[in-house]
Computed example of a mutant assay.
Amino acid sequence: MRPINVNLRQEHTAVINKLIEYIDEHIEKPLELKDLSEKALVSPYHLHRVFKSITGETIHAYVNRIRLEKAASKLKHSETIDVSETSRQCGFSSVSIFSRSFRNHFGVSATEYRKMYSINSKSRKINSKNNQLQSTWLAYNKGGANDLELDITIKRMRPCYIAYIRTNGRVLEKTFEENRNHLETMGAIFDWARQHSLWNPPLTSLLSIEYQDPSVSGNKYMRVDCGLTLLKPIDSTGEVGCRLFAGGQYAVLRIFDTTMHARERVKQFWEDWLPNSGFYYTSQPVIILHQNNPSWEPSYRYFVDYAVPISPKQYPGKNLSHYREEMRTPPPRPDLPRLTQLFEEERP
């Protein structure tokens, strides 16, 4: 009987993965249980039960949390969007409902959040009722990152299909042991790719995708896809899903370091480089492109490209392409050869 239960859970996982993709793509629209159950071709009761079993949250709680985290990310990183527009873009039916939900979740109003925790604010620490902001990696190891040199280039990722296995928890945790779950999931997608003759470097690449803003979402609910780029789409089967990733413009931070120092570099990227770069974070998924297996390194060093989706800020009369070129410091290290063609460097 055990294989039947496993197969049934894999079928449920495939349904929920597709439904989560639909929710992500339509977060600004009404997402009622009845409509979602019709999309998933199951009854509302069955969908409610299966969704909770797979994700640990009810559909209502999941949708509400994703909307609030997306709203917080927009308020934090965008200088122009107001509270009313944030509410609309994140799918709330009214500003009053959004304001009440935001305060209940984060412990402060949306306006106070922007003043206190905006990436351009001098004060970036608030006391969240859910303790979410205290649990982010940005709150970890506050000192020591300012002296690091960051290897950052502005690149463009072409659209591609990705096969993935979904898990939870940020990719770069404090220690190698805390990253073991992520590494095991990466190993599972790698083994699956080899079994299906889909591993073909450098035409294919291993990557992780963090779907929520890492400076807003707590580690418990950070949704991560451990994936493999594909040359063409495949049918989703069981826990292995397939989706089209649109690509776009990214600030790519190259890291070759232990997890602790890698986190310091990522922290410096978000807190120091990004606010002064002429770009803002678009609140789309962050991509971590893996160039090695840290288990094989003597000191468990990660060799990754940490890619954050960005868009230019508006500077009247300023040549932004030249500004973009100014921010490319220092030049890429020659001892770390490029292993993948997923990202293409932009020309000024």
Rank of each mutant, 00 (worst) to 15 (best):
M1G: 15
N7V: 04
N7D: 05
L8D: 03
R9S: 09
Q10S: 11
E11S: 12
K18V: 03
K18I: 04
I20N: 00
I23E: 06
E28R: 15
D35R: 13
L36N: 02
L36Y: 08
S37Q: 07
S37H: 07
E38G: 15
A40D: 13
P44Y: 10
H48M: 06
R49Q: 14
V50K: 13
V50D: 13
F51I: 08
E57F: 10
T58N: 09
Y62P: 09
Y62L: 11
R65E: 15
L68I: 14
E69I: 06
K74C: 11
H77W: 15
E79P: 00
E79H: 02
I81L: 12
I81M: 07
D82N: 15
D82S: 10
R88E: 14
C90D: 05
S94K: 04
S96T: 10
S96R: 12
I97M: 13
F102C: 14
Y113T: 10
Y113F: 15
R114E: 10
M116I: 12
S123Q: 10
S123H: 14
N127I: 13
Q132K: 06
Q134G: 14
T136E: 09
L138Y: 05
A139R: 07
A139L: 02
K142S: 09
K142C: 13
A145V: 00
L148M: 14
D151M: 05
I152K: 01
T153K: 11
A163E: 07
Y164V: 03
G169K: 06
V171L: 14
T175W: 06
E177H: 13
N179E: 15
N179F: 12
R180W: 12
E184V: 12
G187E: 11
A188Q: 11
A188D: 05
I189S: 02
W192N: 06
A193T: 14
R194K: 15
Q195G: 00
W199M: 01
N200E: 09
N200K: 12
D213N: 09
P214V: 03
S215P: 01
S217H: 00
N219M: 04
M222K: 04
R223S: 02
L228W: 06
L228C: 04
L231H: 04
I234P: 03
I234K: 11
D235R: 08
S236W: 00
T237P: 07
G241N: 05
R243G: 09
F245W: 03
A246R: 14
L253Q: 05
R254H: 11
I255A: 03
F256M: 02
F256A: 06
F256H: 05
H261P: 01
A262M: 09
R263T: 14
R263N: 12
E264C: 01
V266K: 00
V266N: 07
E271N: 07
Y280F: 01
Q284L: 08
P285G: 04
L289E: 09
L289S: 03
H290K: 03
N292K: 00
N293V: 03
W296M: 06
P298F: 02
S299T: 10
Y300G: 05
Y302S: 02
V304R: 04
D305Y: 13
A307D: 08
V308M: 10
K313I: 07
H322R: 11
Y323V: 07
R324A: 06
E326Y: 04
T329V: 00
P334M: 03
Q341H: 13
L342T: 13
L342S: 06
F343G: 06
F343T: 06
E344G: 04
E345M: 12
E346S: 06
